[in-house]
Design a protein around this nucleic acid. Structure first.
Lengths: 192, 192
DNA sequence: CCTCAAACGGAGCCCGACTCATCTTCTGGG
DNA sequence: CCCAGAAGATGAGTCGGGCTCCGTTTGAGG
């Protein structure tokens, strides 16, 4: 049932501007992601921000839900074009790269993966689903260990993405991701 | 050079009380770890807290430095009584268990491992040192992959400990830690 | 146009970290 | 034992950031 009165044009515009501004602010770093600052960037007042988003957290969530959408889509693409365990490897590395986009974004990724706040439940579920798909394909092919759920793996990744520290962090992340990946293959060999 | 005037007795007592109260508060959960609350638990006023610790963070740091001391000591013990890769396995699991002590403590562990704040530099260095020792012993014995530094591994662990979510998180953590561990052994087998 | 619900603005509230002017308590020397 | 005065403790107050509330503005259906 579509709402009888859809939504005013300016409201839609402002909502979009807020999401864009928030994304920008998160990418830029934590310093400039106060609500006042985000509102300013979007050219609205804080009150307007709160009209569209319950809390600051809710805004973060919405921004991130969109990022997660892109990531999940990528998982499907990889799986369609590669052997399952290669698809998983690519996906893990994509996550790392993705976190590299910006400090603020990594913070969000970390939060979404690592916190158990119900706010992120939905995004987490979809992300875990994407990973499950990859892992199951690999398990079926006998190249990956079973028994490790998408949720579990995702949380470890959250930690890794949370590295985002000093220079060189990305190499570290890639390395540790590879170790994790090898651990997943290892289990298949050992029949656990 | 011992300070000419050492430190007043009540000051030493209060400092100890603050550290104890802070630890207690962190273990209890984030809710009760506001500075006012910590001061109250210790039976002093906030001003006193700030006389002893530059910032709230500095207090967290000090509390955690002590935890890290215990952990590092355990690493040595394990290594003395087990084959190197078994010692590493035990140590990794000890970290997970340690994080289980309390939500608040896990937050601290996470922060210390994952943040690059210079405040935790010291603790991080010692922790990485303990891990390096374990890894190097295993590498020398040919049972663990080389090329993964203690710092790198530690940060991944920080992420895992940061799980501390809903029920069942600890099983998840143990599982993913095992995957990580298998990845480390796997590299040795493959000669990378 | 005109109406009015929807949307916006922004001063101000609340809460939590932190400061500082003032009062209290040790302690070492006489 | 006592006193000086330095070390220490206090807690009301400041500040910053998230959030609220209500008076004002604006888009759109009639």
């Amino acid at each position: 049932m579509p709402p009888s009165r859809p939504q005013r044009a300016d409201a839609r515009r402002n909502r979009a501007a807020l999401l864009a501004a928030a994304r920008e602010a998160f990418l830029a770093g934590e310093e400039e992601s106060h609500v006042e600052e985000i509102a300013r960037r979007a050219g609205v007042a804080v009150g307007t921000l709160y009209r569209h988003f319950e809390t600051r957290e809710a805004l973060v969530e919405e921004v991130y839900r969109r990022e997660v959408d892109d990531l999940c889509a990528a998982a499907g693409t990889f799986l369609a074009q590669n052997p399952p365990e290669e698809a998983l490897r690519l996906f893990l590395l994509l996550l790392v790269e993705h976190a590299a986009v910006g400090r603020g974004m990594a913070v969000a990724l970390e939060t979404i993966m690592v916190t158990d706040s119900p706010i992120f439940e939905d995004s987490r579920e979809r992300m875990a689903g994407a990973l499950d798909e990859l892992i199951e394909a690999g398990t079926a092919a006998g190249t990956l260990r079973g028994g490790v759920g998408g949720r579990t793996l995702m949380r470890a990744l959250g930690g890794i993405c949370a590295l985002r520290t000093a220079e060189g962090w990305q190499d570290e992340a890639v390395l540790i991701t590879r170790v994790l990946f090898d651990g997943l293959r290892h289990g298949a060999v050992e029949a656990r």
